[in-house]
């Protein structure tokens, strides 16, 4: 996984509630197993009925290489599709800031080096106003070790993140490797469960 420490670039405003993963990654429009994920991002919303580009924020010149996406409540709700994260990273977005972020989507972000930031209250209102005003003209930056978002004028916003998620992103750790350090425990658990409740550890089709 690509580690995350700092990031600088345009912050793109989509200040809406409940932006769901069907919108982010409209899989019905994807062609084949490995489509161009970036091209798929918000594709339904970016097109008119005849397929031409509309005035969606992503179609605007200053957001051709966005780094940060700013939303409101419950970003990433709905389907568990990880392709929603791949679509975002596909255009270069490596940080999503919202008041709240849906559970499964948040996990998917952490596993792909995309920093999910939850910011609430007045600070969020202020950041949303700044991002809207600056409108891609100057870069915002995110510093994960310091846990701050900084606006072009120098104003900073402190955010919370659990120590473990922070380390995971900064070090770009191999998740499976981390868990496999516990292989002996997994094996012991399996043996114990097999002794206690064998039907849980065996999955047999009794018709066969």
């Amino acid at each position: 996984m690509q580690p995350f420490t700092t990031l600088s670039g345009p912050a793109m405003p989509m200040i809406e509630d409940d932006i769901n993963t069907d919108q982010i990654a409209p899989l019905q429009l994807a062609k084949g197993l490995s489509p161009d994920w970036g091209e798929l991002l918000f594709k339904r919303q970016r097109m008119n009925a005849d397929g031409s580009a509309n005035d969606h924020v992503l179609n605007r010149l200053q957001y051709q290489k966005p780094a940060i996406l700013l939303a409101n409540e419950n970003f990433g709700c709905g389907s568990s599709r990880e392709s929603a994260v791949w679509c975002l990273t596909g255009v270069g977005i490596r940080c999503v800031i919202a008041r709240t972020i849906a559970d499964i989507f948040r996990e998917n972000c952490l596993l792909n080096g995309l920093l999910p930031i939850e910011l609430s209250g007045e600070a969020m209102g202020r950041l949303q106003a700044l991002v809207t005003k600056i409108d891609g003209a100057q870069p915002f930056c995110v510093d994960l070790p310091e846990q701050i978002v900084c606006a072009p004028g120098g104003e900073t916003f402190v955010f919370d993140i659990s120590g473990s998620d922070k380390t995971r992103l900064i070090e770009g750790l191999d998740e499976i490797g981390l868990t496999m350090k516990h292989e002996a425990e997994i094996t012991a658990w399996e043996a114990q469960m097999f002794a206690d409740m064998p039907w849980v550890q065996e999955s047999r089709d009794r018709r066969r």
């Binding site: 568990s80 990880e82 499964i104 998917n108 596993l111 998740e175 499976i176 868990t179 496999m180 997994i186």
Partner: peptide, 19 residues
């Protein structure tokens, strides 16, 4: 419900990691 990387993780380890 899980994503694709979590799926890969469960395939390899048979556990999911959660808070």
């Amino acid at each position: 419900g899980c994503g694709t990387t979590e799926l890969e993780h469960i395939l390899a380890t048979q556990v999911i990691t959660l808070f």
